[in-house]
Design a protein around this nucleic acid. Sequence first.
DNA 1: AAGTTGCATTGACACAGATCAAAGGGGTAC
DNA 2: GTACCCCTTTGATCTGTGTCAATGCAACTT
Lengths: 252, 252
Amino acid sequence: MHANVKQNLAPLINPGLKLACSQCNLRELCLPFGLSETDMTRLDHLIGGGRKLKRGHHLYRAGDPFESIFAVKAGFFKTDVLTEDGRDQVTGFQMAGEILGMDGISTEVHACNAVALEDSEVCLIPFTELENLSSEIRTLQHHLHKVMSREIVRDHGVMMLLGTMRAEERLAAFLLNLSQRFTARGYSPAEFHLRMTREEIGSYLGLKLETVSRAFSRFQDEGLISVQQKHIRILDIRRLKTLLAPPDGRIS
Amino acid sequence: MHANVKQNLAPLINPGLKLACSQCNLRELCLPFGLSETDMTRLDHLIGGGRKLKRGHHLYRAGDPFESIFAVKAGFFKTDVLTEDGRDQVTGFQMAGEILGMDGISTEVHACNAVALEDSEVCLIPFTELENLSSEIRTLQHHLHKVMSREIVRDHGVMMLLGTMRAEERLAAFLLNLSQRFTARGYSPAEFHLRMTREEIGSYLGLKLETVSRAFSRFQDEGLISVQQKHIRILDIRRLKTLLAPPDGRIS
DNA sequence: AAGTTGCATTGACACAGATCAAAGGGGTAC
DNA sequence: GTACCCCTTTGATCTGTGTCAATGCAACTT
């Protein structure tokens, strides 16, 4: 299991990678959102430098002591949970501007693994210092709460997906979600490269990899998308969205 | 749909119900955990009184403006999400000492419905004031973050359940979780009353009510539990736990 | 006390998705 | 540049859970 994930060679923190939040083009998506110039400078001083990770390397592992949360500066991550009885599941995919590691706050120990799915870069945000600063900057405090709350709401969406949707609906929702997030980052809404395998998609969506593959093929046959390995092009986003409506289209 | 849920008659906030955190026997489970006497008194001043709800009444609805979070003082709640395409799913069941409403922080609007499953009572915690106070009391700030993080971790557990478990495993996990939470509150770990219907259990577990019912019956046939409508008695908790291990018992 | 109205149980059958299996293709490492 | 390995695709079959339907049970109402 996970033979494809290379060992983490403990990449070092590199202060040279430190790019001030105030200079970062992700600041509108990320933690500094809404901060004044002066407050953003204070946040700059707190960020503990950047960290680069090669594809396949762990940002953190379940069980690691919790010290920081991380902002994805570039690249793509997955998080997965592994229970003692041998089950494992991908709980999310994170892209630039998104925050990783908040699962560790409650127990002071990370509850899941975070793995880079391509060469990536994160900002390290020491959590105790973030709490210190956020008690002085109300905007920052409130935004941190919003970020955590958004994660809760997102998880509820995934629970809905896993609890009520059929395979094709799940995959459609997944593609639309990716499309929307890429759009928000200035990339094409219709054409993108999947960073994860069919198995990882399946794990996230509660499906087997064969089912994911078949659903992709069926979407392609129906002219909804074109698939070439990890290359996806959405051809008919409108029809893709209608897949999400349940068969009888009842409205409550 | 939801014809069984009575209309919310807008129960009023009752300052007379205000019981100080410092006097509450749930304080070790709830928000005041870890606070000093003096800090707890400050929290007391913030709590906006209690609110009683009859069974079937909404504490809040999706779309309501977000102003407060709530601590369950007594009773039992469910939260559910309802999407515009007509899907709905129970996202959680909350009992005494647990916090409700954190889904509303991110958008200033509640993202789900919260319904009392029995006559219940909550404490109202105005969120802006809580943020004010928590920026002065570091212990409170940190504990709030822990509570939110715990909710994220809990949701990941549910995602795991929905994504990887079979019907009987889901139900076993559900019963064990309830048992453990009742135990933490001083109730019997083995005997309890379900406050929710088979349909609500099914919605939470991503199953149809018939499947839930059949799984209960099979557990009873195998001597794991005894079921009489909503009355559950766990007869063999050890064997129930072994159900959670997947068939081949692989350990990663 | 009887009637009404959900809620729960149980059975028969259908089907979506899992499983098992085999072959092809593309990216990565050397 | 080449070879290997992993990822992906596709087919055939199996099975767990959903669906449809009917009956039973219990609590609440009048």
